[in-house]
Amino acid sequence: MKDAEFFERVEKIRQKMYSIAYSYFSSESMAVDMVDDAVYRGYLKKHTLKEPKYFETWLIRILMNVCATAYKKAKKHRSFEEYIVEHEPSAQPTLDKLELKEAISSLPEDLRRIITLKYYADYSTKEIADILKIPMGTVGTRVRKALDLLRIELGGES
């Protein structure tokens, strides 16, 4: 894949990439950094992508791994709230939003990815199944399970 084609394809999915990255950090600058990092890694490894039709699922997978790794690192060193405040002091979330964000981020990684892809990036069940390499039925099960866990976490009933 040539450079021009690579960046053309990136341009088409940059909105989804940003949303996914934002879902992890709730920070514009961090989300941009994560997208930059994922694009750079994809650019470095683009020769390993044999089927261009899988470009999107491939790059989104890279992005989610980049985000998950960075998120784990950040959580290790400081609380989530401190992390957000440090990176985006002007974007103080409301208490409810913060609770929901915390609940989403406290989900197991496989469930969190489902929520991110479905609600932040608006991917269909079929697309999520392709990106995560899991059956479509499993996607549905995980969505339900994630939503149930969030309800419990936020004080509602299952």
Binding site: Q15, Y18, S19, Y22, S23, S26, A31, A91, D96, K97, L100, K101, I104, I115, Y119, Y120, L147, L150, R151, L154, G156
Partner: peptide, 13 residues
């Protein structure tokens, strides 16, 4: 919960 999440994602879009 789905509605809450969709509201939350608006700033990400």
């Amino acid at each position: 919960i789905e509605k809450e999440i969709l509201e939350l994602t608006s700033e990400a879009k």
